[in-house]
């Protein structure tokens, strides 16, 4: 069951609906990563907006799923501030998308470790609604989103990156700054924990089939 490849977006991907000011001879229509970083360093608004529009969905998604939907706005804001202020330091030795993911994940994990501990374990299980009758009902997705909250933050990060965002273990390892083998083993533990959390709901679902 190889994951559907989403891969970290690179700068050649066409971003959101952003109208860039026209200027003959410049690189604004298809700027390279380095050109964007340098323009951000000069404080050029078009480059900062380009980054925001191109990566806002991915960054917000990571913030929401790693830090929780209630804190997603705050974490996404913090992540983008770090990204836009850090871009002048981007050296181009990694893909820009990977670097942005790394900052977003770090912002989310920092937020998680600083806030009071969230409800976990049995409390979360209690909050997971009973299974509905269809085999692949929308309720499973909702329960899965809620069970994510019960995972340790590191497990959550690797599961979100690999299983939800569809990144490879190599990309996960780069973003999380760990070895590929560590990414694999952590994902295995994360899934095992999810199975524990969702097992009763899944079993009930199967009985209802």
């Amino acid at each position: 069951m190889a994951p559907p490849k989403r891969s970290v977006p690179d700068s050649s991907a066409n971003g959101g609906a952003l109208s860039l000011p026209r200027q003959a001879g410049d690189q604004r229509r298809d700027p390279s990563d380095r050109a964007i970083a340098e323009a951000c360093g000069r404080g050029e608004a078009w480059a900062m907006e380009l980054i925001y529009h191109r990566y806002r969905r991915r960054v917000y998604g990571l913030a929401s799923r790693i830090a929780g939907p209630e804190d997603a706005d705050e974490v996404a804001q913090e992540a983008f501030v770090r990204i836009l202020r850090g871009l002048p330091k981007f050296r181009g030795d990694a893909q820009l998308g990977t670097w942005i993911y790394r900052l977003a994940v770090n912002a989310a994990l920092t937020h998680v470790t600083r806030r009071p501990r969230h409800t976990e374990g049995d409390e979360v299980l209690d909050n997971i609604p009973a299974a509905q009758t269809s085999a692949r009902d929308p309720g499973l997705s909702a329960r899965l989103e809620r069970a994510l909250v019960a995972l340790p933050a590191g497990y959550r990060a690797v599961l979100v990156l690999h299983d939800i965002e569809g990144l490879s273990h190599e990309e996960c390892a780069t973003i999380l700054e760990c070895r590929v083998g560590t990414s694999k083993s952590q994902l295995h533990k994360a899934r095992a924990r999810m199975r524990e959390l969702l097992g009763p709901a899944l079993a009930a679902e199967r009985k209802g089939e």
């Binding site: 850090g86 912002a107 340790p152 590191g154 497990y155």
Partner: peptide, 9 residues
């Protein structure tokens, strides 16, 4: 650069 090490877990 906001990208300090943070291994899974």
């Amino acid at each position: 650069g906001g990208d300090g090490p943070q291994g899974p877990g």
